[in-house]
Design a protein around this nucleic acid. Structure first.
Lengths: 191, 191
DNA sequence: AACTCTGTGCAATTTTTATTGCACAGAGTT
DNA sequence: AACTCTGTGCAATAAAAATTGCACAGAGTT
């Protein structure tokens, strides 16, 4: 019953809605402390449902191709995007994980693994330094007490990063989904 | 028998070590996407083991009191610091959670709760918009297919934030510690 | 009331981060 | 080989975030 003018107006509304979804994805990414353009590209590629080239992205965002290149590289190092070779095209295509939860897990584990690694190195260094100072100690109560304090601190530090380490493992192995399952198709479930 | 010169040199080394710990704490905070000064203050107050005033902090960091005020307010809103009234002093004192893991949990839950809230509002709005468009649909295959796509997207979105919501609950309730226990060294038996 | 602190709003400044434009290497094509 | 793309290094620029200095309100003190 409707004219084709209505049709194209509806389609425009639908596209606008898609754009809003992409924006929301982008906003979510901010919580991971990554640049907002990362979130934007993630949202765009996700909603596009097909891998995209740097030129596609530059056009979609209105930004420079150089920036697209920088951001995609960063996304790859965060494990939330990957290159995909499309035959017949010389351009690199980029695709993103299309599962929200999986993206969450990837970002979480990638970010924290890096921290764990640094923390471990630091704990080793701290251990050596404390031992060294202890060896040179003049035995005064003040020094000894401080050494004991630092030793305790070191213990807590080690316990901390070991915990994060196991936490990351818990996410990455998928065990998290036994404890906190993903409930799909449960309409109207809210609290 | 050591001279007092050795003693003060040792103490200086110990203080330097403490400073390194504070720095590491600060670096860890970056992963939560918060300003590095937040991490710095957290580290300083933590290692100080006593609540501190804005003036104390300004002196410890060499930064302005205004900035200290801004940062402490932010830390309080992130649930990782709190005001503490010290009698006999007119100044506000600030204290921080002294358990690394608990700080992690606080930041995690505070940050994501905010996202969940925004996502929930968004999902409701999206639902309404899709219904509205569907009601105005001209029944063309193209429009209907896109509407169906968006509906599916909405479902996934809802499943996603419901999952994060339950995840946050899992952390906040402490159930996470059944699944991933904190393994403390038996050395220091505090708490 | 007058006076003294203490914390913070606000605009200005500094520092950091994001973004671009250009050029050019390397790979693919003719 | 010469020629054409494609992605990226790099230095410059624009935008955003952090930081400061000043001023002033409100609360506590004399």
């Amino acid at each position: 019953m409707s004219a084709s003018g209505d049709n194209s107006q509806l389609l425009e509304q639908l596209n606008e809605t898609e754009r809003q979804i992409a924006d929301r994805i982008s906003d979510n990414m901010n919580t991971f402390g990554v640049s907002s353009t990362i979130g934007r590209l993630l949202g765009i590629i996700y909603m596009n449902r097909e891998p995209m080239t740097l030129d596609d992205l530059a056009e979609a965002t209105g930004m420079s191709k150089t920036r697209m290149s920088q951001v995609m590289r960063q996304m790859i190092s965060l494990n939330i995007a990957e290159k995909e070779h499309v035959k017949g095209s010389r351009k690199e295509h980029y695709n993103v994980e299309n599962d929200y939860v999986q993206t969450f897990v990837s970002l979480f584990t990638t970010n924290w693994r890096e921290v764990i690694s640094k923390n471990r190195q630091f704990a080793n260094k701290l251990q050596r330094e404390i031992d060294e100072i202890a060896a040179a100690s003049d035995g005064s109560a003040e020094v000894d007490q401080k050494i004991a304090e630092l030793r305790k601190e070191l213990d807590e530090w080690v316990a901390y990063y070991n915990w994060i380490n196991r936490l990351v493992e818990f996410f990455e192995s998928g065990d998290i989904f036994d404890a906190v399952p993903i409930e799909r198709n449960n309409k109207g479930e809210d609290n």
